[in-house]
Design a protein around this nucleic acid. Sequence first.
DNA 1: TAAACTAGTTTGCAGTATAAACTAGTTTAC
DNA 2: GTAAACTAGTTTATACTGCAAACTAGTTTA
Lengths: 103, 103
Amino acid sequence: MSDDLRRVTELDRLIHEPARLLIVTILSTVESADFLFLQRESGLTKGNLSAHLSKLEDAGYVKIQKTFKGKLPLTVCKLTAAGTEAVAQYRQQMQSFMNLTTK
Amino acid sequence: MSDDLRRVTELDRLIHEPARLLIVTILSTVESADFLFLQRESGLTKGNLSAHLSKLEDAGYVKIQKTFKGKLPLTVCKLTAAGTEAVAQYRQQMQSFMNLTTK
DNA sequence: TAAACTAGTTTGCAGTATAAACTAGTTTAC
DNA sequence: GTAAACTAGTTTATACTGCAAACTAGTTTA
């Protein structure tokens, strides 16, 4: 009876975490973003952002390129195809869930 | 600029957890529900359900009444006014977030 | 009266989010 | 020239969490 409702427990926890949901959402609005841009936009601390980015990278959702801007390190992040797909699916599942009880 | 987006990190974590989101959503569709009904509907294990209910109770979101059905214990759960309000707010916040990028 | 069942709760463990502390290098001040 | 402050991150420590297995307390069945 509440089989549809139950699917809420199948949400991708990697995306579900608010800090990461924020990060991937920001990333989905730009072609790519460097670390400091993400930090400013998200308001997360460096440590926190770094840890979340590593998880997203491990999951294959974000590609991280380390280069240099002049002599300073520059970390550029970009959603992968898998990441884009995961975000789309998450949004679809969450919206479906919301629609089940909103009306 | 992404101030609106950032609010996603302010979501009530107590409600955000999928298992609890499921529980409170089920509770919001009924006047009250006993433990076994919730277990069947949610598909959660007893231990898990018990632990989540305790958290919701501690938060004041769910009222738990322990009685007996004949000689067997019966645990009846019910959303409190605060719980109903918290769920409504969560839904509103999550929907706002979704609307920011879905469009 | 022993075995199986009911209705839960507690415990143990593995995983998590977070900020503080750290690393490695660069620029500025004196 | 070298000490202090800054940049751009990563690692570590801690406190919290979700989860199922093990347990509790009582009841019914054999």
